[in-house]
Design a protein around this nucleic acid. Sequence first.
DNA 1: GTCCTCCATGTAATCGATTTCATGAGAGTA
DNA 2: TACTCTCATGAAATCGATTACATGGAGGAC
Lengths: 350, 350
Amino acid sequence: MARIKDVAAHAGVSVATVSRVLNDNPSVTEETRTRVYAAMTALNYVPNAVARSLRTEATRTLGLVIGDILNPFFTELARAVEDEARAAGYTVVIGNADERADQQDHYVRTLLEQRVDGLLICPTAEVTPLIEEVTRNGRPLVFLDRTIPGLEVPSVRADGTRAIGELIRHLRDLGHRRVAFVSGPGTLSTGRERTKAFLAAAAENGLTVPPEYVRVGDFRAGSGQAHTSALLDLPEPPEVIFLGDNLMALGALDEIRKRGLRIPADIALASFDDVPWFAHTHPPITAIAQPTAELGRRAVRVILDILHGSTPDSVVLPAVLVVRESCGEVTRDRSREGGDEADTAGRDRS
Amino acid sequence: MARIKDVAAHAGVSVATVSRVLNDNPSVTEETRTRVYAAMTALNYVPNAVARSLRTEATRTLGLVIGDILNPFFTELARAVEDEARAAGYTVVIGNADERADQQDHYVRTLLEQRVDGLLICPTAEVTPLIEEVTRNGRPLVFLDRTIPGLEVPSVRADGTRAIGELIRHLRDLGHRRVAFVSGPGTLSTGRERTKAFLAAAAENGLTVPPEYVRVGDFRAGSGQAHTSALLDLPEPPEVIFLGDNLMALGALDEIRKRGLRIPADIALASFDDVPWFAHTHPPITAIAQPTAELGRRAVRVILDILHGSTPDSVVLPAVLVVRESCGEVTRDRSREGGDEADTAGRDRS
DNA sequence: GTCCTCCATGTAATCGATTTCATGAGAGTA
DNA sequence: TACTCTCATGAAATCGATTACATGGAGGAC
C-alpha cells in the first residue's frame, strides 16, 4: 500500500509537503498541490489513520457501548449517535454489551486500547472496577440512557416518572385494580427508577400492589415471557401487566399468544419503550415513548463539549405516554387521537 | 497516560521486555514477568493499540458496512458477525450506509483509512468506483446478503427463490389470482433476484401479473407505504401484496391501518424477511425467513479464511416460507403448525 | 549591488509499540 | 581456569504520519 513517502517521490516533493496537502495547510502553492493530488490518485493513496492517530494523539473516533444490539431502542439510539457524530467528523465504534457487565468491560477495554477520543456508555451494571478507574482517570465519558449514582459523570437520559404516573391513572380510570410490573434489574438505574415511579404512582392512585406483582426482569424477551407466565399462574393473577421495556413486552406477547388469551379482555398490557410495530399488534399496545433519537444526539453534543474543554451538565428529557388499546377501550372521543398515536409511533421512521 | 517506557522504568527493565510480557513471549523469567505485571497495574497501563497496529500492520479489526441499522434484519446480522468475530479475537466496526451509496463509500473509505484487516460489505448499489478499486487492489473483502455481479468477490447470502415459489403456490391454493410485488431497487441483487423469482413463480402457477403490479421500492418503510397506497388506488387493486422486505411490510401495515382495511379479507399481505413481531400482528404475517444469524457467522468465517491465505467459495443458504394467517385462513389441520411457526419466529431470540 | 523579508519547501525528531540483533551472565565441560 | 553454549535481556531500527525548525530563492527597498 502506498505511503506518504511514495506520494512524495512520485510528485517530486518532500513528505512534509504531502502532509501539508493532506491537512489543507494554506502555505502550499496551488501548483504543487495539484501535483500532489495527481500523485495520490495515481498511486491510489489512502492515508493511514493509524499512523496519523499515533502522532496526533487523537483518533476522531467515539466509542459507544450499548446494552443490547437486538433491542430496537438501542439501535435507534446508536443510529442517532452515529448521525450526529458523523456530522461533526467523528466515527463511532459500537460495542454490544449484550446486557452483561463482563462484555461491557471487554468493549470498554478494547475501546480504550484503540484510544477513542470519548466514550458513551449505557452501563449494564452498578459499577465495575474498570468503569470506576475510567472515571477516576478523568477520561472523556458520558453515561447514556442509564446512570451510575455516586460517580461524577455527565449523563443523558429520559425520565419516565411522569409518564408512568399518567399510565397508572389511565389504568385506574379504566377500572383496573390489580396491576403488575416487570421491571429491569435493580442494578440498572432505569430498572430502579421505573420500579420506584410505578410504586409511587400505584400508591397515589390507591392501588395496592402485593409483592408478587413486582418482578425483576432483565430487559430481555425471555424474562418477559417467564414473568408473564408466573404472573398468570398466580392464584390471583393481575388484570394488567406493565413491562419495563419493549423486549420484555415481546416476550409477554409470546406467552399470552401461546396461552390463547385475549388482550385486554383476559389480560391487559402496557410497555415502557415504544417501537413502530406496537401500533400493529392486536390490539395496538399502550406504551411510554422515550425521545430516543434526541437522547443520542444530545449525548454526542455533551461528549464533544467535554472534548472541547467544558464541563457540561447532565441532560434529562421526559418520556411520554402513548395510549392505544391494550389496556382496554377508551370510551371517550378517541378516534382522532388514535390516528395521532399511529403517527407518533411512525415519527422517527421516515 | 502511561506508556510502555514508563512501565519499563517502573519495573526496572527495558521496553523490549515489557513488550515480550505483553505478547506472552515465553523467554521471560517468571520473576520479571510478575514484576512487569505489577508495574502495569500500578500505572494503570493500557496498551496503545494504535502504536501496535502501526508496527504490526494488523489491527485485528473487521469493518462491516450494513444497509440500514434500523432494519432488524441487519441488526441481527451485525450481532451475529460481532459474536463470531469476537470469538476469534477480532473487533467489528459497524458502518451504517442508510441505503445510500455515498454513505456506504464514506464508511468504506474510513474503514480503509483505519486499516481494518478485512471488509464485510452489504453493497447498497450496483458498483461504485471505490468498491471497484478495493476489489482490484485485492484487499480482503466479502459481500454479505447482497452481491455485485461481475466482481470476483466471495459472497455470503440467502436464496429465496424456492421459498418465493412456495409462497406463490400457497397464494394460488388459497384462491388468490391478483398478486402484486413491491421489490427492492433494481440496483441491488436482492431486489432483482426476488423480482425474478416472483415473476417466474407467478408464471409457473398460471397467474398473470400486469406491469403495474410489480413495483420498485427501496427497502424502507416509506416506500412500502407509498406503493401500497398506489396499489390500493388502482382501478383493479390486487388481492395480495407481497413486500420485498420487513420494513416495507411495516409501511404497508401503516397504510392499511390508516385506511381501516382488514387483513386478509380486504387485502392480503406477505413479506420477505421474518421478524419476531410478525407473529403478533393482527393477523400474524406470512413471511419468508432468512437464516440471518447463520449468514453473519459464515461471512466472518469466510473473511477469516481469506486472511489466512485461502480463497474460499461463496456461500448460499436457503430461505424458508413461514405460513401464518395474513394471506387467508388455511383450512386444513393447521393448529399444530401455527404453534410451530410462532416458535420459528422466536427462534433466534432466546 | 546589497541586504532584508517573506514564504514555500525540506530535514529530522517524534508518537508508542514490535522485533532484529547484540550482549553478557551463568552453567557445563575438559 | 578457560572455553563454549544457552538464554534472558537490552539497544536501536522501524512502522507512517505530523510538525518545529532550518533553508534558500525571489522580490523589494535603499
